[in-house]
């Protein structure tokens, strides 16, 4: 099955190899609505990149275009120097981009272990006829795969929940499992869609630690959508801000916090002037 699905990417002409992901003039039109308009940014290898913006700015649409859920109307997505625009989601995942979802999407009624083992499926190493006959190759590979999954789960301290059904886990552990499942596919780029949504301050701090931890341990580049400013400003090195489908700012957390257009996008027109006044008063 996997042999039949070899991706046929066309190589990009001028992709700087040090950038893990490059988004070039990406646009998506739904009927008359321009959800994303000429979006551009690039993420260097190993970076922690944040994508923020008010609700409905088009952040998740960008995610969906990167991961192949939507086909972009125009523009290119370059991953590690390869143009992956318009590839099907499962091929993009197999190339090394994994994601989590805004509202957790676990395989609810399967065990925690199976959630991770499914991520290993593209590299299962045995054919379907091996599995139907339960032959020696199946036994060996299946055992190997299971051991790998158990070991992997213990990295995330979920090894005491192996047999638990995913939907019975507490919320924080479900988030952790979702991130673990995404990482089990061995990606080089991880997309996190609002990982801190619905978390209390303590849980978000734990999440920030987890993100730092996995970045180092798995040698990852991370793209993050988040609404909790504490999380975004706390861990991202570079931040892009979107509003009405367009990029309105790009820079370090410091620069973003002082950007007039960003403040206006979040708090409404005229608010930038107000905040200036407020700052002066404070000084």
């Amino acid at each position: 099955m996997s042999a039949a699905n070899q991706p046929t990417p066309k190589a990009a002409e001028t992709a700087a190899p040090e950038n893990t992901l490059e988004i070039r003039k990406l646009s998506k039109v739904f009927g008359g609505l321009r959800a994303v308009n000429n979006m551009e940014f690039s993420i260097p290898k190993g970076a922690l990149f944040g994508l923020i913006g008010p609700n409905g700015a088009g952040k998740t649409t960008v995610f969906n275009m990167i991961t192949g859920v939507y086909e972009p109307t125009s523009g290119d997505v370059i991953f590690n120097g390869t143009n992956i625009t318009g590839l099907e989601p499962h091929l993009i995942n197999q190339m090394g981009i994994a994601r989590t979802f805004q509202n957790i999407r676990l395989f609810q009624s399967l065990s925690v272990l199976d959630n991770v083992r499914i991520a290993y499926h593209p590299h299962a190493g045995y054919s379907m006829s091996d599995s139907i006959f339960h032959n020696h190759k199946y036994e060996v590979k299946e055992k190997e795969l299971t051991e790998r999954a158990v070991e992997f789960l213990s990295v995330f301290n979920l090894q005491d929940r192996l047999r638990e059904t995913a939907k019975n886990l507490p919320y924080g552990e479900q988030r952790r499992l979702e991130i673990a499942r995404a990482l089990a596919a061995n990606p080089s780029l991880l997309l996190l869609d609002e990982p801190a949504a619905g978390m209390n301050p303590n849980e978000s701090v734990a999440l920030m630690d987890l993100i730092h931890f996995i970045r180092e341990r798995f040698n990852l580049t991370i793209l993050l959508i988040e609404h909790q400013m504490r999380v975004v400003m706390g861990i991202c090195e570079t931040i892009a801000v979107m509003d009405f489908g367009e990029r309105i700012a790009l820079g370090t957390p410091q620069e973003i916090q002082n950007d007039q257009r960003v403040i206006e996008a979040y708090l409404g027109p005229g608010s930038a002037a107000l905040s200036e006044k407020f700052k002066r008063k404070k000084n």
């Binding site: 099907e88 499962h90 991520a119």
Partner: peptide, 11 residues
Amino acid sequence: EDEIAAKAMGI
């Protein structure tokens, strides 16, 4: 269980 998640996991 979840088609979208399955796709995102390379299935």
